[in-house]
């Protein structure tokens, strides 16, 4: 019963947060471009996302006649549910956690691989050239970066000695892993950008060349689900960054939940700032960068971490 309440609360707050994030991102982007951003709906424009949601809901729920209908409808649902499921293992505080799995990290990776399906399926089911190219790009990108992402956190797992996320946070009591796992943190962050296909890695939806990539044919609330999934993904990846490298809920004076969200928002801000700053690379540049730089670097990081642990024991760090 307790857990059910927790799940409902969690779902509610996650939706609210991602909706707010859309507004926050647009306001921040606005200010970074010396303009206001949405400031008309509600105080400071805070209800902008609500207005957008109403608009999207009120729009005709149109499925193109040439689409593969069941798959077309399924795809947006997959992305949202995969991301939401991942939150089950996220420890917001030592006690606030839906399912404290001992393979928590692997569970997250498994589900994020699942969300790659949604892109492929959306691209395929749309039956349009832009969507298909977007879907193909998305799958290539996500499969590649999944590898480095997994490898980059292996250092953390070695240091913590556990896949359970709560153990990983507790292992950072004295020192956040972002210090010993500097390289791992960097690679993870880059991979996280790619996983959420945020700018500069929004190649599957590259507006300039693919109209809107895999969700070209989507409109109404189905499009809204992709949008929501993207922002939920940002929250998830930011939470993971905080849990794996920035000490999770740990911090002085303030209650753990506050610390957790504070850190998460900082990371989200960095996501936005990178979007505002960096241009989009070419697709081949992205893949080449991954396989020639990130893969060796993460392997090296793993090797060095392993060597140090082997020579000095767990306490060496």
């Amino acid at each position: 019963m307790n857990e059910l309440v927790l799940i409902v609360l969690l779902l509610g707050s996650l939706f609210t947060i991602s909706a707010l994030l859309i507004w926050v991102e647009r306001r921040l982007l606005g200010h970074w471009q010396e303009r206001y951003g949405p400031n008309r709906v509600g105080p400071g424009g805070i209800l902008q996302s609500a207005a957008d949601a109403i608009k999207l809901l009120a729009k005709e729920d149109w499925t193109p006649p040439f689409a593969d209908k069941p798959v077309f409808v399924l795809a947006p649902a997959v992305v949202v549910s995969a991301v939401l499921l991942s939150f089950a293992v996220v420890p917001f505080t030592p006690s606030l956690i839906v399912a404290d799995l001992n393979i928590g990290l692997l569970f997250v990776f498994a589900l994020s691989s699942l969300s790659a399906y949604s892109i492929v399926l959306a691209g395929w089911a749309s039956n349009s050239k832009y969507a298909l190219i977007g879907g193909l790009r998305g799958s290539a990108q996500m499969f590649s970066y999944e590898v480095f992402m997994g490898l980059s956190v292996m250092g953390v797992v070695m240091l913590a000695g556990s896949f359970r996320l709560r153990d990983i946070v507790e292992a950072q009591q004295d020192l956040w892993f972002c210090i010993p796992q500097m390289i791992g943190a960097g690679i993870f962050f880059i991979a996280a950008l790619a996983e959420t296909h945020r700018l500069p890695f929004d190649i599957p939806e590259a507006e300039a060349e693919l109209v809107a990539g895999y969700h070209t044919e989507y409109s109404g609330m189905k499009f809204g689900m992709f949008f929501l999934g993207e922002y939920l993904g940002i929250v998830l990846m930011s939470s993971l960054t905080v849990i794996l490298f920035l000490g999770g809920w740990q911090g002085p004076w303030l209650p753990p939940l506050v610390w957790f969200w504070l850190k998460t928002f900082m990371v989200i801000m960095v996501f936005f700032l990178i979007r505002a700053t960096l241009p989009r690379p070419r697709f081949d540049q992205l893949i080449t960068f991954g396989w020639t730089v990130l893969l060796p670097a993460s392997l090296l990081n793993l090797l060095v971490t392993a060597i140090i642990i082997l020579t000095n024991g767990h306490d060496a760090l």
Binding site: L28, G30, H31, W32, Q33, E34, R35, Y36
Partner: peptide, 8 residues
């Protein structure tokens, strides 16, 4: 830029 006045 966050601390600059928008030109809008």
């Amino acid at each position: 830029r966050l601390f600059k006045r928008p030109v809008t």
